[in-house]
Nucleic acid binder design. Sequence first.
DNA 1: TTGCGGACTTAGGAACTTCGTA
DNA 2: TACGAAGTTCCTAAGTCCGCAA
Length: 736
Amino acid sequence: MGSAEVDKHTPPSDKHKEKSKEKEKKHDKEDRKHGREDRKQSKEDKKMDKEEKKKGKEKVKDKDDKASFFEVKNEPLSEDDEMPLASRSYSQTSQDSEDDDQPLAFRKKVKAEKPVKRKAEDMAIDDEEDYAASKKKNKKVKEEKKEKPDKKQATPNGASPTKRVKKEKKEEEETWKWWEEEKHEDGVKWKSLEHKGPVFATDYEPLPGNVKFKYNGKEMKLSAAAEEVGSFYAAMLDHDYVTKDVFNKNFFKDWRKFMTHSEKEIITDLKKCDFTHMLTYFKAKSEEKKNRTKEEKQQLKVENEEIVKEYGWCIIDGHKQRIGNFKIEPPGLFRGRGDHPKMGMVKRRVMPEDVIINCSKGTAAKPPAGHKWKEVRHDNTVTWLASWTENVQGQVKYIMLNSASRLKGEKDWQKYEIARQLKDSVEKIRETYKEDWKSKEMKIRQRSVALYFIDKLALRAGNEKDEDQADTVGACSLRVEHISLHEQKNGKQCVVVFDFLGKDSIRYYNEVPVEKRVFKNLQIFMENKKPGDDLFDRLNTTIMNKHLNDLMEGLTAKVFRTFNASNTLQEQLDSLTDPKSSVTEKILAYNRANRAVAILCNHQRAVPKTFAKSMENLQKKIDSKREAIEEAEESYKDLKKEAKKGGSAAAKIAAGKKEKQVEKLKEQLMKLEVQATDREENKEIALGTSKLNYLDPRISVAWCKKNNVPIEKIYNKTQRDKFQWAIDMAGPEFEF
DNA sequence: TTGCGGACTTAGGAACTTCGTA
DNA sequence: TACGAAGTTCCTAAGTCCGCAA
């Protein structure tokens, strides 16, 4: 393909395509070389085959019978398969049957402006019918419950009947055993859904007259709109964000859109803006808030509870369920993470006219007075109750149910079931991708190496990203600059050093010894590429997931993370738990197992600001506890002597008491030491994410039951609510 | 067939609440 | 009772993945 032709498709301003063009030329060379390289490689492969066979005959023993399970497609390898796309006619693009093997960079796009679209849906089943059906079912469930009175519900304390009814009602909400009920048919998420709509952000309250904004040293009264947006910035003055150029630039550009004509003429430079008075005012207000009296705080709490009572719940299929986020996001400045090109842009106020309500027919909540909903929809194939499109990134935002709800719980349960299924197939899948390391097709080799990373390192899939998002990557989108290869490093061979930013721009750094064949493949993938080029130029997540789904129904890249996380927890718990140890020690073992998973999944957190100080305090406590033990032991010795000398009964009692005190102090010291170890090991690791999203709760529940550890020690109230299904169904014998 | 957008899960930090100790 | 630390909840950005329209 001539470059002139490329130019036709490549506006000079388009960075991606520019990059692609370079890649294209490079691939041309590269792939011609790959042709040679592949031949060279087959020799190399044979050599490695021999080595492998020597090393682990028993490992491959059952390979033959497994091979049929996940058959590698025996595609005839046409010359074109290995031919760089760049050397084919580019204009045919998608029509090209060989497009599969095209360096995928060509397909990258810069997001086009979204047209306003609307699905006309009306899929909800007739309300009356639904309600009748679901009520009938619920009645049955309730009756069953009546027969088996809950121990907790017995109120010997003589609670008033209304109180008791309330409590019973609450119990019922908490114990809807949806996991014992029949599932909805495929695609149907609910039969009836009723809610009060979202809560909107409070209106802007203009600043008091004495709070001044200054421009170029002079006081200036801002229009309401300009003041509101300016105050978003003022409130963030102490934050790291305002030290970033992109943030300031984006804010200022957007802020000007809210200014009057004359304000625009005057305010032309952000550096000349003085928001400090505004910030002082906000700080004083928040201080005021902190210093409210007990009564005021109580009053506020009651008011909030009222709001939750009215808007925080919905009735779905006849059951009352908590809504996760019933408040519409308030306006403010966009806080993109990492180097997000849109940070600082104004997130505008969402109005009822922006909001789509989803519910059963005839049950739509009224919009706030004087307003209309954008639309009322009755789509029971989705789980959201309301949605709107946010202005900064054009994404749809949703109001959805709480994680303790059936809708979320059922999905969660299903997720872990698929992960358990993978456990049964993973060995065969591993064999398959190891075979694929030798494939003649570059695309298959790349896929198999990427899958190896996903499996071994629990990397995320790595979807392609637009230019207007932070530059982060996952397995499929790794670039050459993100890895370095070392034949030898720290006494280990074939080491790959990963260094890239993953989700939320969290750094992933890992030095990993890999199999020789992977190492060789990586060398090939990197040949003649620039640091900014895709490592796997013939791969994306769609290709990967398509392949995975062929290997096992429902399998996607994400499942490996869930599987590896849960499997690690199970293994770690099995090896770290000493049945004879104390509950405190068992919990330390659990946290260590949890930590192993968090490390695997790279769940990091910033070191808490107060960490050093709190460690220091803890150390002081430990020291003084040691001193106390020494003293107690001394006096115990004396008392024992006295008692032995033929002391009084009182002396003997005193000695006995002291002995117990020493024991108690020692136990307290042990707890403090365990706490210190735990805290130190946890400094930069976030345990919550894996606990909430990756660890099959049945493993934890079974472990608690088996080891007599109260579940409250592992899961707090919210977590117990979320995992109620697992707590109910998993016995001590459960194995992931 | 594929690019795109919608739906949903996963994520870390901020804000708020509770707990423990002096 | 006050204060700081720890624990919990809230918030919303940033991922994954799938289905549908062009």
